[in-house]
Write a protein that binds this DNA or RNA. Sequence first.
DNA 1: ATTAAATTTTAGACAAATCTAAAAAATAGT
DNA 2: ACTATTTTTTAGATTTGTCTAAAATTTAAT
Lengths: 219, 219
Amino acid sequence: MNFSTSEENYIKTIWRLQQNDSNVTTNELSAELQTKPASVTDMLKRLKEKKILNYEPYYGVKLNGDGKKIALSIVRRHRLWEYFLAEKLGFDWDAVHDIAEELEHVSSTELINRLDEFLGFPKTDPHGDPIPDSKGRIEAINHFALTQLKEFQLAIVVNVTDKDNSLLEMLRLKKIGIGTKLEIKQRFSYDGSVEVKIRNLPLITLSEQLAKNIFVKTV
Amino acid sequence: MNFSTSEENYIKTIWRLQQNDSNVTTNELSAELQTKPASVTDMLKRLKEKKILNYEPYYGVKLNGDGKKIALSIVRRHRLWEYFLAEKLGFDWDAVHDIAEELEHVSSTELINRLDEFLGFPKTDPHGDPIPDSKGRIEAINHFALTQLKEFQLAIVVNVTDKDNSLLEMLRLKKIGIGTKLEIKQRFSYDGSVEVKIRNLPLITLSEQLAKNIFVKTV
DNA sequence: ATTAAATTTTAGACAAATCTAAAAAATAGT
DNA sequence: ACTATTTTTTAGATTTGTCTAAAATTTAAT
C-alpha cells in the first residue's frame, strides 16, 4: 500500500503521540499537525478505510500492527536522513529536522537501506532518538529527564526533545549535546531550576522547562 | 516563489524540450508528462499567471528568464542527487533517475549547496549531463551522437540519454559507460548499425537506435 | 479552396486535503 | 442531575491537479 505525504505525516504523528497516550485524540492531532479538528476527523476516516488504525468516533485513535510498521519505516527514514545531514553535510542539530521532514517522504526502500549502510548503520539520530533497523526493530528507551536526576549523581545526556528548534539552538550555544557528562549541583524548588556542572566549566543554571527536555542515563 | 512538485515537473520538462524545439507544444508536454493535453493546458495557464513562461493559446510555450532559472535549479538538484546515488550509495546508473525524480523536489537551497560541496562539486551526473552550479551556470554541450562519428576516428563517450532505463541497463551490460574509448570500424547503411571496437574487446554491433543515444567527443 | 485530420482548448466532473460554521456528543461544574 | 463548556463530527465550500467529452482552431490533403 502507498501513502501520500499527508497520510504519512498523520501516521508518524499518531505513532509518536500513542507512545505516551495509548489513545490519541482528535484535538491532540490537530494541535501537532497544525490543522483544524475537522480535517483530522476526515483523515482518520480515510486511514481507517485503509485498515491501518482503529478509530471510533469520539473515542480517539490507535495504530494497529500494520500501522505501526508503516510508522516505524517513516521514522527510520526521517532519522537516517537527520544523521546524514548532521554527520555528512555538517548541519547543526537544530537544522536537520525540517529538511528531514521533506526527505522522509521519498519512499524507495532500496535507497534507505543503502543510505543506512553508507552511514555505517547508526544506532541513533543527532538528538539521540533510536533509529529503527530495516526490519522495523527499535531500541527500547532507557533514560529519564534531567529533572529526575539525583543531586551529585554523574549522568550522560543521551536524548533531547527534537520538536523545538529554539530549544536545540539554545543547547548548542550552551555546549550541551548528546554524550555530554554532567551532574546536578543544586536544585531550586521555588522554580524547579537546576544548577549543573559540566566538566571543568563554570556552573550553569537550567530552567525546569529546559531540564525536562534533556534526557540522561547514569554512568 | 514556491512551486509544487507537479509544477516543478512541468517546468523541468518544458526546459528540456525547449533545448531542441524553442517552442514547446501541448502534445509534446502531454506525451512527456504522461498526462492528457487538457491537463497541460490547465497547468500552462496557471504557470503563465505566475509569470515564468510565455504561453499563447494554440501557439505553444516557452520559459522566460525567471522560468529558466527555476528550471536550472531543479535540474541541479536532480543531477546532484543522481551523482550522490551512484557515487556514494553505489546504485547502477539505470537506477538513479527514478529516485532522483523524488529527491529533486526537496527544496532547501542550503541542503543542495552542502550536498554539492560534500560530493566535491562534480561537473556531470552519472549519464554525463552537466550539473548547473549554485549560480545556475551550466557547461555548454560539446559532443555529438555516435552515429555522426567518422570511421576509424577514436572518440570517448561523454553522455548518454538518461530517459530510458532499459537503454542504460543495456549499455551497462555491454560495458559502455561515460569515459569509454571507442572507434567505429564499420558502418552499415542498410539499417544504420555500426560495428564498434572498445579497447581490446571483441567487435560489437550497435543498432542505429542505440548509437543515436550515445554521445561522444573526439580525443 | 474546401474538406479532413490533428491539435488544442473549454466545460464540467472528480478526488485529495484542507477550511468554516453549525450540530452532536462527551465532560465538567455546580 | 442539569446545565455549561469543551471536544468532535457533519455539512458544505475551496484549491490543486487531474480526467472525459465536446467545441474551437490550426494544419494537411486533395
